[in-house]
Amino acid sequence: MASTIKNLAFFPLVFLLLCVDTNAQLSPLFYSRTCPNLQLIVRNSMRQALVKEARLGASILRLFFHDCFVNGCDASVLLDDTATFTGEKNAFPNKNSIRGFEVIDAIKSNVETACNGTVSCADILALAAKEAVFLLGGPSWSVPLGRNDARTASQSAANTNLPPPTASLATLISSFAAQGLNARDMTALSGAHTIGQARCTTFRTHIYNETNIDPNFATFRQRTCPGPASGTGDDNLAPLDIRSPNGFDNGYFQDLIARRGLFHSDQELFNGGSQDALVRLYSLNFRAFANDFVNAMIKMGNISPLTGSNGEIRKNCRVIN
């Protein structure tokens, strides 16, 4: 596994984009004086995590998405529930689903050792998501930094704002538009499903009850995801990209062309609708996908950041100060 990560880390296509058309209060150079080794610390920490379990790359990327879609990129998703506070971890789209919190904890600890009380959990999560993509073979980019951490979270917003794996194309487009992301951004960001795995309960209906799926693929997936009548198998895992589940490439879009999208919402991107041509482009041209993915990640990372005197720099990403 270690050698695989090492080889993927030197993927030749690396995009180094400085963001000039971004939130003016965020800058890739935000910690250049106060924590100059920040990005190296995050990269080394993520590399160690991926050597232990490559799936954690997808988990961290998903954490970032689930954070930004709920009141902006403010690390609210990292907050634990307390006796007086209900956070987002147990919202319906997150419960028994999002993971990787211990990775962020470890990175935060390493960063605190080097730069005490300086770097927000929100920025750590943004950087960790970028490193997850890069270390699994995808592009790199300059992450705008300077976010603060939220002092609150919203379970109701998590239940409302995060599109489910059963979403239609219209619902997906609407959900992303509500966050300032267009349909092209949505399709590019969906390409994050080129890595990671999903629980049987999230794709069971698609493989048993729907027609826009390759029947051989449906049968294959049914082997490890029993029908609902069995009462078993809910937590059995399947890769979102059957071709290369631990490599960040365009295999996901090739799967969609072959009608092998694992989620209903995945296959909706290639179902005779407005995104078919873009899916075809991405399936043939990794560079086009990578460019659009980077631009969409930067755009998503700029959703309602807390800056200046708003929010705080948490000492522990799981609790407010």
Rank of each mutant, 00 (worst) to 15 (best):
T201H: 14
L169K: 03
N321D: 13
S265P: 00
D185I: 02
L26E: 10
L38M: 06
S309K: 14
R243Q: 13
A49G: 11
R43V: 06
G301E: 14
R223T: 08
F64T: 05
A2L: 13
M46R: 00
A170P: 05
L18M: 11
P12N: 05
G180F: 04
R55K: 12
L256G: 12
N291C: 05
R147Q: 09
N44P: 03
A290V: 05
V133L: 01
G146C: 15
N246T: 09
D235E: 08
N316M: 05
G301D: 07
L50V: 03
G231H: 11
R223F: 15
A24R: 07
Y208V: 07
D67R: 02
L8K: 09
L13H: 11
A277G: 07
P163I: 05
I298T: 01
T166A: 10
N209I: 11
N216E: 15
F101P: 08
P28M: 07
Q275E: 10
T34E: 14
A83M: 11
L278T: 01
E210A: 12
D266P: 10
Q25S: 15
D249P: 05
A157C: 08
L38T: 04
E112A: 12
S59C: 05
T160L: 10
T4A: 07
A132W: 07
F10Y: 11
Q267Y: 11
S274G: 06
S175C: 03
